[in-house]
Lab assay of single mutants.
Amino acid sequence: MAAAAAAGAGPEMVRGQVFDVGPRYTNLSYIGEGAYGMVCSAYDNVNKVRVAIKKISPFEHQTYCQRTLREIKILLRFRHENIIGINDIIRAPTIEQMKDVYIVQDLMETDLYKLLKTQHLSNDHICYFLYQILRGLKYIHSANVLHRDLKPSNLLLNTTCDLKICDFGLARVADPDHDHTGFLTEYVATRWYRAPEIMLNSKGYTKSIDIWSVGCILAEMLSNRPIFPGKHYLDQLNHILGILGSPSQEDLNCIINLKARNYLLSLPHKNKVPWNRLFPNADSKALDLLDKMLTFNPHKRIEVEQALAHPYLEQYYDPSDEPIAEAPFKFDMELDDLPKEKLKELIFEETARFQPGYRS
């Protein structure tokens, strides 16, 4: 834990890192770190609560700039109880001085990944967590956004079992017609939660990839272990087919990539493993919904509104309290091709509203 900075004593240090967030945020305490930044909790002297502050230093890398800009653009436009918001952003007053960006968010005690390492969940908890994931996802999908990296560590939890989806750095506007060349190379989302079509096709992607990830998360809540822990690309596919069985001819016809289709045709026939054999203690309604989410063919996979209306979630289902976005989200430009200098300018502009004396 960093010592509390005395008023006016300059930035606090946390594990050798400068955290320049005073005077409003003090009493910093280390939480963890990701690929390009550290997260601390801090005391907000204005709202009198502890908050989470993520320090991001992305400006050396085009990919990190892209992810940072995506996350900020999306989260500043989203407003939903099951999606983490941005409360404040701290950065230098000029673009030349801006080396880091500090993002202030609600402090959540833990995440689903940490929880599943230590606790076996009751059916009631599984049901409530799944409902909140789908409630947040309904809003995301209504904005025409794909999260693309749903996994237990991106689901934040607090002691009252509130759940918030975080990390929109890989999110995209849904565009089933656009052929994202190089899709697989830039697709760094965790393999275990990846839909089979991501490994088999490169053309376009749809909201059904997020539903697949939610199915993987439900299976993990039922058993405290990942359902498809593939060691590499082909191993991942083999794990999936080992449980779902061989795809039907109709399902194979959806695979545009001939090499991928021929690979699947070359494999020995596998039978589907019954879900109640894998999860003998699970609620039968939970397994019915799991089956509809972990469907090989993305066109037959359940959609988020149908999933919310499934009998497993009937005690929570309330369409009048499951809000959607006001308007579909649009990125003005494809960020993939922009140089990091341009992305830095866009991050600077996007964060201006939090600067003292800002006038829109």
Rank of each mutant, 00 (worst) to 15 (best):
A2L: 02
A2Y: 03
A4H: 08
A5M: 09
A6N: 01
A6H: 05
A7M: 02
A7S: 13
A7D: 13
A7W: 02
G8I: 08
G8A: 01
P11D: 08
P11T: 14
P11G: 07
E12P: 00
M13Q: 07
R15Q: 10
G16Y: 08
Q17I: 07
Q17H: 15
V18E: 09
F19V: 14
D20Y: 15
V21F: 07
P23V: 02
R24S: 14
R24G: 08
Y25G: 02
Y25W: 00
T26S: 15
T26V: 05
N27E: 01
L28A: 03
L28F: 03
G32P: 07
E33M: 00
E33P: 15
E33R: 07
E33F: 02
G34L: 08
G34P: 03
A35I: 03
Y36W: 12
G37Y: 10
G37H: 06
M38P: 13
M38Y: 11
V39Q: 03
V39D: 02
C40P: 15
S41H: 02
S41R: 04
A42I: 01
Y43I: 08
Y43H: 13
N45L: 12
V46P: 11
N47Q: 10
K48L: 13
K48C: 08
V49Y: 12
V49C: 11
V49R: 14
V49M: 15
R50E: 11
V51Y: 09
A52M: 12
I53R: 02
I53Q: 14
K54V: 11
K54A: 02
I56F: 15
S57Q: 04
F59D: 06
F59I: 15
E60Y: 13
Q62V: 13
T63P: 14
C65D: 05
C65K: 09
C65M: 10
Q66M: 13
R67D: 11
R70W: 04
R70S: 14
E71F: 08
K73V: 09
I74K: 09
I74N: 15
I74A: 04
L76F: 02
L76C: 08
R77G: 08
F78K: 04
H80K: 02
E81V: 13
E81H: 03
N82G: 08
N82F: 09
N82R: 09
G85F: 12
G85S: 13
I86Q: 11
N87F: 08
D88V: 13
R91A: 01
P93H: 02
P93C: 01
T94A: 00
T94Y: 12
E96A: 12
E96I: 02
E96T: 08
Q97G: 04
M98W: 01
M98Y: 09
D100T: 05
V101L: 15
V101A: 13
V101H: 03
V101N: 08
Y102M: 06
I103C: 12
V104R: 06
V104K: 02
Q105C: 11
Q105T: 15
D106I: 00
D106V: 13
D106L: 01
L107T: 04
M108S: 05
M108I: 14
E109V: 13
D111Y: 14
D111F: 09
K114Y: 12
K114A: 10
L115D: 03
L115P: 00
K117D: 07
K117E: 13
T118Q: 08
T118M: 11
T118L: 08
Q119C: 05
Q119I: 09
Q119E: 11
S122M: 07
N123F: 09
N123Y: 15
D124T: 15
D124G: 12
I126A: 02
C127A: 12
Y128F: 15
F129K: 08
L130W: 05
L130N: 06
R135H: 08
R135Q: 06
R135G: 02
G136Y: 01
G136W: 14
K138L: 08
K138G: 08
I140A: 03
I140G: 07
H141V: 11
A143K: 04
N144W: 02
V145A: 00
L146Q: 14
L146I: 10
L146S: 11
D149M: 07
P152C: 11
S153K: 10
L155N: 03
L156E: 08
L156I: 01
L157Y: 04
N158C: 02
N158H: 12
T160N: 10
T160W: 04
T160C: 05
T160P: 12
C161H: 04
C161Q: 09
L163N: 06
K164Q: 03
K164S: 08
I165D: 05
C166E: 06
C166D: 01
F168N: 06
F168H: 04
A171D: 12
V173S: 08
V173F: 10
A174C: 10
D175N: 12
P176W: 06
H178R: 12
L184E: 09
L184M: 14
T185L: 03
T185F: 12
E186D: 13
Y187V: 11
V188H: 06
V188R: 13
V188Q: 05
W192E: 06
Y193T: 08
R194P: 04
R194D: 06
E197M: 05
I198Q: 02
N201P: 07
N201Q: 03
S202C: 14
S202I: 13
K203D: 10
K203A: 11
K203L: 08
G204M: 11
Y205T: 11
T206R: 07
T206N: 13
K207S: 11
S208I: 07
I209S: 12
D210L: 05
D210T: 08
D210G: 00
S213H: 10
S213L: 01
V214K: 07
V214G: 13
G215S: 06
G215D: 11
G215C: 06
C216G: 12
I217T: 00
I217W: 07
I217V: 00
A219L: 04
A219G: 12
E220L: 08
E220N: 05
M221Y: 03
M221G: 06
S223V: 10
N224M: 10
N224E: 13
R225D: 07
F228N: 11
F228R: 05
P229G: 05
P229H: 14
G230S: 12
G230A: 03
K231H: 04
Y233T: 12
L234A: 04
L234R: 09
Q236F: 04
Q236E: 08
N238W: 12
N238H: 14
I240S: 00
I240M: 09
L241I: 13
G242E: 03
G242C: 15
I243T: 02
L244W: 08
L244H: 00
G245S: 12
G245F: 10
S246W: 06
S246E: 06
S246D: 02
P247L: 10
S248V: 10
Q249M: 08
E250T: 12
E250R: 09
D251M: 00
D251L: 10
D251R: 06
D251F: 08
D251G: 10
L252D: 07
I256F: 14
K259V: 04
A260H: 00
A260T: 12
A260R: 04
N262I: 15
Y263L: 12
Y263H: 00
Y263F: 15
L265S: 07
L265A: 07
S266M: 07
P268D: 07
P268Y: 02
H269N: 15
H269M: 07
K270T: 02
N271M: 08
N271A: 02
N271P: 04
K272V: 08
V273L: 13
V273N: 03
P274R: 09
P274F: 00
W275F: 08
N276H: 03
N276D: 11
R277Q: 09
F279C: 08
F279H: 05
F279A: 04
P280D: 05
A282T: 12
D283A: 13
S284G: 11
S284C: 06
K285Y: 12
K285L: 13
K285A: 10
A286E: 05
D288N: 14
L289C: 10
L290I: 09
K292E: 12
K292P: 02
M293Q: 02
M293C: 05
T295K: 05
T295A: 00
F296W: 05
F296T: 09
F296I: 15
N297E: 05
H299K: 06
H299N: 14
K300F: 12
R301L: 10
R301P: 04
I302M: 02
I302F: 15
E303T: 04
E305L: 11
Q306P: 10
Q306L: 14
Q306V: 02
A307Q: 01
Y312L: 11
Y312W: 10
L313M: 15
E314R: 06
E314S: 08
E314F: 01
P319H: 08
S320Q: 11
I324S: 12
I324Q: 06
A325H: 00
P328Q: 06
F329G: 01
F329C: 00
K330L: 10
F331C: 08
K340R: 13
E341S: 11
L343E: 10
K344G: 08
E345W: 11
I347C: 10
E350H: 07
T351I: 11
T351H: 02
T351S: 15
A352P: 00
R353W: 09
F354E: 11
Q355E: 05
Q355H: 13
Y358I: 12
R359P: 08
R359L: 11
S360C: 11
S360Q: 09
S360E: 14
